[in-house]
Simulated scan of single mutants.
Amino acid sequence: MKTRRLFFALAAGAALLAAVGQASAQQRPIRLIVPYAAGGPIDVTARALAERVRDSLGTVIIDNKPGAGGNIGADMVAKAAPDGLTIGIAATATHAVNPWLYSKMPFNAASDFAPITQMVRVPNVLVMNAETAERLKIHNVAELIAYAKKNPGKLNYGSGGNGSAGHLAGEMFKKEAGIFALHIPYNGGNPAQLALLSGQVDFNFDNLATAAPNIRSGKLKAIAVTTTQRSAALPDVPPVADTLKGFAIDTWWGLVAPAGTPPDVVGKLNQAFVAALNAPETKTRFGALLAEPVGNSPEQFGAFMKSELAKYEKVVKATGARVD
Score class of each variant (00 low, 15 high):
residue 157 Y to E: 09
residue 157 Y to S: 07
residue 158 G to C: 08
residue 159 S to F: 10
residue 165 A to I: 15
residue 165 A to C: 07
residue 169 A to M: 01
residue 169 A to W: 04
residue 169 A to R: 00
residue 170 G to I: 05
residue 173 F to E: 12
residue 177 A to V: 01
residue 178 G to C: 13
residue 183 H to I: 14
residue 183 H to Y: 12
residue 184 I to H: 14
residue 185 P to L: 10
residue 186 Y to S: 12
residue 191 P to E: 12
residue 196 L to P: 04
residue 198 S to Y: 01
residue 198 S to A: 06
residue 200 Q to G: 11
residue 200 Q to C: 12
residue 201 V to P: 03
residue 202 D to H: 14
residue 203 F to T: 15
residue 206 D to M: 13
residue 206 D to H: 10
residue 207 N to Y: 10
residue 208 L to H: 14
residue 211 A to T: 06
residue 211 A to K: 15
residue 212 A to R: 09
residue 213 P to E: 03
residue 214 N to L: 05
residue 214 N to V: 04
residue 219 K to R: 09
residue 220 L to D: 15
residue 222 A to T: 08
residue 227 T to R: 08
residue 228 T to G: 09
residue 229 Q to W: 09
residue 229 Q to N: 07
residue 237 V to P: 01
residue 237 V to Y: 00
residue 238 P to S: 07
residue 239 P to M: 07
residue 240 V to D: 14
residue 241 A to C: 04
residue 242 D to V: 00
residue 242 D to T: 05
residue 243 T to R: 06
residue 245 K to N: 02
residue 247 F to Q: 09
residue 248 A to M: 00
residue 249 I to Q: 08
residue 250 D to F: 02
residue 252 W to P: 15
residue 256 V to P: 10
residue 256 V to S: 13
residue 259 A to R: 13
residue 259 A to T: 12
residue 264 D to M: 04
residue 265 V to T: 12
residue 274 V to A: 07
residue 276 A to P: 02
residue 277 L to Y: 04
residue 277 L to K: 03
residue 278 N to T: 01
residue 280 P to F: 09
residue 280 P to A: 06
residue 283 K to S: 01
residue 284 T to K: 13
residue 284 T to H: 14
residue 285 R to S: 05
residue 287 G to R: 09
residue 289 L to K: 13
residue 290 L to E: 15
residue 291 A to Q: 04
residue 291 A to H: 11
residue 292 E to I: 09
